[in-house]
């Protein structure tokens, strides 16, 4: 399935873009997405944490992705 991933903060700098188009196997889970990102972008290993949001909610590692999901990379937040 094709996914469009939104990137914010330092993840946008690492990708060099605010969006990334990614092809993942059907019924891929969040953990598969994180593994694919780590493979393609080794700099992700240097982050103190990386959360993934699906449709504006924090997602657990075992959540199954669907093609129309809005997926976003959430590096450590620092608002306030």
């Amino acid at each position: 399935m094709k996914l469009t991933i939104l990137a914010f903060g330092i993840t946008r700098d690492i990708l060099g873009a605010s969006e990334l188009n990614l092809e993942l196997p059907e019924s891929a889970r969040i953990e598969d997405l994180k593994a694919e990102l780590a493979r393609r972008f080794p700099a992700f290993a240097n982050l103190s944490a990386l959360a993934i949001a699906v449709n504006s909610q924090y997602a657990e590692l075992d959540l199954e992705l669907k093609e129309l999901d809005e997926v976003a990379l959430i590096p450590p937040v620092s608002g306030g």
Binding site: G9, L47, S48, A72, P75, V77, S78, G79, G80
Partner: peptide
Amino acid sequence: LKQTVPIWKKEHFEDGEVWVAAH
């Protein structure tokens, strides 16, 4: 808010810039 809200802060210095808490 500081723990959960997806907002990011970049500090700009005279010699560079850094995303706070990223590393």
